[in-house]
Nucleic acid binder design. Sequence first.
DNA 1: CGTCTATTTGAATGTACTCAAAAGCGGTGG
DNA 2: CCACCGCTTTTGAGTACATTCAAATAGACG
Lengths: 191, 191
Amino acid sequence: MPFANLLKNIQKHVNLNAEEEAYLLSLFSEKAVDKKEMLLHEGQPCHYFYFVYKGALRSYCLDKQGKESTIMFALQNWWITDMFCFLNDKPAIMFIEALQDSVVLQIHKKSLDNLLLKYPKFEKWFRVLMQNAYTREQLRVIDNLTLSAEEKYDKFLAKYPLIVNEITQKQLASYLGITPEFLSVIRKNKL
Amino acid sequence: MPFANLLKNIQKHVNLNAEEEAYLLSLFSEKAVDKKEMLLHEGQPCHYFYFVYKGALRSYCLDKQGKESTIMFALQNWWITDMFCFLNDKPAIMFIEALQDSVVLQIHKKSLDNLLLKYPKFEKWFRVLMQNAYTREQLRVIDNLTLSAEEKYDKFLAKYPLIVNEITQKQLASYLGITPEFLSVIRKNKL
DNA sequence: CGTCTATTTGAATGTACTCAAAAGCGGTGG
DNA sequence: CCACCGCTTTTGAGTACATTCAAATAGACG
C-alpha cells in the first residue's frame, strides 16, 4: 500500500474528499531504486519531488575539488528533491542516491503546479513542508556556526538515531562537514 | 506610504481585490524601532512577523558561552522573525535588533492564521516565502560546509553588497561563523 | 572631551585537515 | 564457500587554518 502512507502524510495538513484524493494519487507514480542507484544526477533537469515509501536516500553535492557534502538523508515517509532546482526549473546541483533498495512515489513538477492550481487547498500542505524544511535548515546553520565537530556528532545521534544505522561514516562526516578520519577519532574517544 | 511596499511585495504572488486588500492591511500595524532597540528578546513569546518598511534589522542568538551567531540581516522589503518560534508558539531563541532607526509593519500570529483561513489564496504567498527561505538556508549550509572563511566572506560581499554598509565587522563575522579578529586579517590581506 | 565599544595586530594555541599506510569489511566471481 | 578486489575505517605524524588572549589604536556617541 505505498499510497496509504503518502495519503496519511498529506492528510495531516489537508482534509480530502474522494475526488481530490483520486486526483492527487493519479499524479504520483511508483519507482523502485536499487541501492547505489542515482535518482538524480548533477546537471540533469530536476523534474520530480520524491516521497520515500520504503528504504533510504541521500542527497549530496560536489564542490570544485570533488569533495562531497551531504545535504540530507531521507528515510521512510520523508520527502526529498533538489528543491531549488525543482522549483526554479534549473539543472540539478545535487545528486540523489539510494542508500538501500528503495521505493519512491514521484510527482512531476508540472503535476504539482497543476495540483496547486486546481485544488489550492494543497497549498497549505506544501507550505507546511516548506516551513518545516526552512526551520530545520536554520537550526542546522546555527549548529554549524556554534558547535564543535564532536558536539555536532552528538546532536546528530540524538536527533536522527534511525539514520545512523543506514549510512556509512564517510556519509555522516560529509553531512557534519568534517573528514571521515576525524570522525573516526571522535568515535574512538567515546569508548 | 509604508503599506504600498507591503502590498507590492505580496501582490507579486497573489492578485487581490479591494476587499482582500483592505482586510490584509487591517492586520498590519506600523512600529518604529530606534537603532539598537530590540524587537524581540530571547525567551519572550514571538507573536509577530515583521516586514521591514525602512531601515535594517538583524536576528541573532547566543550560545551557552555567550557567543553571538547572526541568523540573518533584513533590509528594506525583507521579512523577518524567529520563524520556528513564531510558527510553533514557542518562546524565542533569537534576538531581533534594529541596526538603524527603522520602521516595520507587523502582523500578529493569530492575524496571519485568520488571514490564511479566511482567504486561502494567501497560502501561496506564504508558501513562496518559505520556499525561498528554505532554499536560501540550504545554500548557506552548503557554503558553510565547503568554503573557507575567506571564500565565505567573498561570497557574502558578492551576494549582499548592500548589507555590508549597514553592519559592523563583528556582526558580519558572527554571520560567517568566524572571529572578528580573523575577519580583520582576511580584510587586511585583500589590500 | 571622555567613555565605551570596535578594530587591529601579534604571539601562542588548538581544532581539525592532509597524507600515507595498514587493517577491516562487503560484495563478486570462480 | 572461499579468495580476491575495492572501498571504508583506523591510526599516526606533520601541517594549516582559525581561535584565544592581550594590548594598542581607532571610532562612535553622549
